[in-house]
Design a protein around this nucleic acid. Structure first.
Lengths: 359, 359
DNA sequence: TGTTAGCACTCCTCATCATTGAGTGCTAAC
DNA sequence: GTTAGCACTCAATGATGAGGAGTGCTAACA
């Protein structure tokens, strides 16, 4: 069976109508609303073909048709046009963000919030992995007899801190000294790049009583190793409850619970999928591995800082999602992303994922 | 109408049965399950009285009775006994927490998570207000040409940080110097205790070019003033969806959305209520001012650090909540709270809210 | 050969109606 | 004061049928 232009039009009509109404679409509706020069009977024949091709399906015999995962996929890949109206919305959003913060993590949270408000779906933002980020500065701060604070700043000005125990009191001056050495040796590196040789070198350079130094370095290395491997920030989760596809409370619950599990989310958005290139990644309905997401679609963008992809911004919604709007919003966002960050921030430049291979 | 012992027994029976089944309780059920020496007819007469007193109500004429807010209130105030089984559970929970962290905020998050798991309800923990906490240490860290990080540590080892812009480059040594002065002058104080005289004094002592100093102090003071006035941490929000009283999706949604609004939550838990003493605060159904909470009950405990009440831990559930379990858990928690924190932490001691006036 | 009108058929939706049963309130007897 | 008995109420359940949206098929048409 060949794929005529007309079939595509009908598929698109079904999808557009279904996105709007969430009701199965009948042949007469299409004939009246979209293709007035064809009778419903003709459209019925075409729909029958489309169903055979697996692009649409029928909830029951005497109902209209709804798009299948495969149908949405075809729509997203071939039929969908970008929307400049949404681009404008993104522009407004970006202006809200500009110069608002010097810190990448708060910026990302703001983006998540605004994107959830704009799209009315749920957004999931993964923060940069500490381990993959380059350290910009690190410092020990005296706290009390038994503890000190280790403060780490990574590129993007993300600050992490951890209280570490001391075997015995250290003078502030000693700490400053150690901090200087640590900084000299470690800044610019990522956690994965730190090895034993480096640690030995630091130990020598500090010239501090080796017992203290030993425990201190252990604590620091512990902190670095166990630092959360990427935080997840979710916004607009309750938006899901407003869609009729989630009026079944059990379904809604299982999805919301899934969205609450950081490790699962991380696993999901970081999952590599050979078929998609560098741009946005769109997963539709049953294309998702995870069962809780079989009724959902997820659009994911990777953001970059410097030359590394370090995190993701995703929009989660029902399969009957306004793909055009979401894709426009995310693409617009990724385009403007580099300009968002600190007007004259030092050397680092956030660059967008280049979209080569896409028109 | 007087309140006989028997009426109380019947009320208690209704409540216990309703907690279990979520179904209106009929006279025959009580006669069979709880008070076998009385006929259903007798119980019916008593129930009629209880209804007239406003302690129970009837969804419709031919249904059993369910407790009213007033009924639960009486139960909570007079009938409910503490439960030692739950105490044991709390004991286990406490052991899980012990020595886990040196930082009050992560400890509180853990508590929230565990309490949500234990009770199967939703927990809401408010973090200490920065403005009310005493500063333990504060420090400026160099970052790059245009910015520095201000790190604040409050009692409880809660670390906050903020990137602040610099009008021009400062040497690390200068920053250390400024930090020392700031520390000397400010540590031990809370934000509310800092005034203009103090700032002037700091300016003099630093002996740094006054333009730089001016902008720096402004930024710091900005940071302190605008520091989030208490963060809110919610755990187990989706538990709500498992209760039949929230099978209506609109109701569930409005509650979940309410729980997502930090400012509203803060307003709620900090609301002073003259009628309750120092111990736990229990708000049942319509006793809550906020409309979204009319079907819910909230049990709130204040935690203290040193001599100040600085935050709250709450459990939110349906009105048909297992008050005994929740109250036992929270009371047990507050009792052990002081022992939880850092084995040999410096001077500060977390003390519990004393329960005088309670048996 | 592609398009369309017509028609029988399917099956969901909704309203109606009767049945059932849990529960009540009242009364009269114990 | 307690209880048995009885009439009554009303939500829940399930059966029934009308209405309607939509389909698939067939036959006629351009």
């Amino acid at each position: 069976m060949d794929m005529s232009e007309r079939k595509l039009q009908i598929l698109q009509a079904i999808i557009l109508n279904y996105l709007e109404t969430a009701e199965p679409v009948g042949s007469r509706t299409i004939s009246r609303r979209f293709l007035m020069d064809l009778s419903s009977a003709t459209i019925r024949n075409e729909m029958s073909d489309l169903e055979e091709m697996g692009l649409i399906e029928q909830p029951h015999t005497s109902a209209g048709r709804i798009p299948s995962s495969k149908g949405y996929r075809l729509y997203v890949d071939q039929l969908m046009k970008r929307d400049s109206v949404d681009d404008q919305q993104v522009g407004i959003l970006m202006n809200l963000l500009k110069n608002k913060t010097l810190q990448l993590d708060s910026l990302l949270k703001e983006i998540g919030d605004l994107l959830a408000t704009l799209t009315k779906y749920t957004t999931v933002v993964t923060m940069p992995h500490l381990k993959k980020s380059a350290l910009k500065h690190l410092q020990l701060m005296p706290l009390d007899e038994h503890s000190a604070v280790l403060v780490l700043v990574t590129d993007g000005n993300i600050v992490r801190n951890h209280v570490i125990p001391l075997v015995r009191r250290l003078e502030p001056e000693t700490m400053y000294h150690i901090s200087d050495v640590l900084n000299k040796e470690l800044s610019g590196l990522s956690v994965t790049q730190m090895d034993l040789t480096l640690i030995q070198k630091i130990k020598r350079e500090c010239q501090v009583d080796s017992e203290v130094m030993e425990s201190l370095l252990n604590a620091i290395s512990d902190t670095l190793q166990h630092a959360d491997d990427g935080d997840v920030f979710t916004s607009g989760a309750t938006n899901i409850l407003s869609f009729p596809e989630f009026s079944d409370i059990a379904r809604a619950r299982s999805l919301l619970e899934f969205l609450g599990q950081k490790d699962q989310i991380l696993h999901l958005v970081n999952m590599e999928d050979k078929s998609t290139g560098p741009g946005l990644k769109i997963r539709i309905g049953t294309e998702n591995q995870i069962e809780q997401l079989h009724d959902c679609s997820i659009v994911t963008a990777n953001y970059r800082y410097g030359d590394r992809t370090i995190g993701t911004i995703s929009v989660v919604g029902p399969m009957r999602m306004d793909y055009k709007k979401v894709v426009s919003a995310l693409e617009g966002l990724m385009q403007d992303f580099p300009n968002l960050f600190a007007p004259g921030a030092d050397p680092p430049q956030i660059t967008q994922e280049d979209n080569h291979g896409k028109s």
